[in-house]
Structures are given as structure tokens and as C-alpha cells.
Amino acid sequence: MTEFASGSLTGKNLHLSFGHNHVLRGIDLHVEKGTTASVIGPSGSGKSTLLRVMNRLIEPDQGDILLDGRSVLKDNPDELRQRIGMVFQQFNLFPHKTVAENVTLALRKLRKLPKDQARAEALEQLDLVGLKHKADVRPANLSGGQQQRVAIARALAMKPEVMFFDEATSALDPELVKGVLALMTDLAKGGMTMVVVTHEMGFSRNVSDTVTFMDAGVVVESGPPEQIFTAPATDRLKGFLSDVL
């Protein structure tokens, strides 16, 4: 894999409420440059919301976000999001555009690359995820696993400093999960800074450098995977692990 322009990412004391629903209650999360942090926890614990707050798709009510040690809350949020790639559970490819156009859209309109150069970079990214030969078909003609790999290529093409994965394999048929996880593993090994919200405990345990367990809007436990998975300290984490493992 190629070199990544990775940076570190820190969320400090992040709070968010939707009306009376206090979704995030003071979350701290730190990801060292070039490492992978996985976030696990039951549904509704605020994991996906945390990602959306950290790239300011949703503005936090309180707290700070630091990219490479510098607060980004005052930056233009659109520019911040160019620096953070995001991959979604439902892929969210643009169905009215071809696979290559999905990748070139942001390259052309945001990075202002000329058409041929954007296409060349897109093909390079698609090659990386093994789908260069599908460049000119529409996403609807691809399997779920292929669509998710295109979504990863689309995010990587912007040369992000951090990548977010929001349950990237949860919507996939079981036989397609492996390919996407292998690609994510390659990225992690290649030195990409990643925050991975996942239900794949194997990935969390074997690939990530730190694991954060969230429940009801708070970080209950966090640490290296062997500690979290073999020596959980709290009853909540013990209960969660016995449910999912």
C-alpha cells in the first residue's frame, strides 16, 4: 500500500443532545497518527453519532476536536471533511454516476484536478481496491462488497489524513465481509489513521491498536485490544462481550 498523509485525531469531552436526548455525554477519544482505534458497543450507544460529530457533520454542543494537535472547530467544516474520509454502512455511492465518476467528482470539483488527471487518479485508487475493470459501470451493477470497496476508494482519493468507518461491513452478505475487512486491514497496516465503528470483534481484536467500548453515550472502557477482550474491568463490557462473542 502507498504512504498515507496520516495525522492524529483527538476528541475531547464531546457532548451532543438531540432535544432531551443526551446522545454523547463527554466522550474522549484519541487516535495516534498511523494507528487504528475501533469503537464497539451496543446499538444506540452513540458510536455512529460520535463519528459524525468528529468530522462535524453534526456540530458538537460542547468539547473540542483536534487534528494533528490543532483544534479544528473554528475551521470551515467543509474543508475539515476533505481531510477526513468516511465510509458508511449503506455505501452511499452516487447511483446516477459511474464508479469512476463517483471517485472523480470530489477530485474535480473540490481538488480542481483536470479531467484526465482526476480519471487517472481515480483508476489508480480503483486499482488499489481491485475494481479498476468496473470503472465505467454504475454502482447498481456491483455487489455490496464491491460497492463498499468503491466507497473506500472514493474516500481515499481525497488523500485524507484520517479515515472513518461506520459499520462498514454490517450491510454486507457474510461471504462479502472478508474482502472489505481485508482491505481495511491493509489500510491499517499501511499506516492510515483510522477510527472504525464495528461489530466485527475479530477485526477489533486483531487489527486495531486501541479499543473503545461505548454505552449510553459514555466511554465505559478503553485500552489495547488484549486488555479489553481478555480482561474487561466493568460488568457492562463483560455483559456486552458475552452477548456478542
Binding site: 468530522n55 457533520l57 467543509d78 474543508e79 471533511r81 476533505q82 477526513i84 474520509g85 468516511m86 458508511f88 452511499n92 455511492l93 452516487f94 467528482l105 470530489a106 470539483k109 473540490l110 466507497a151 472514493r154 474516500a155 481525497m158
Partner: peptide, 10 residues
């Protein structure tokens, strides 16, 4: 769709 586009930086 809007979310994915905004996440790209649009």
C-alpha cells in the same frame, strides 16, 4: 446521499 457528499467535503 447528502451525508456522503458532505462527508467528501462538499
Amino acid at each position: 446521499q447528502l451525508e456522503a457528499s458532505r462527508a467528501l467535503g462538499f
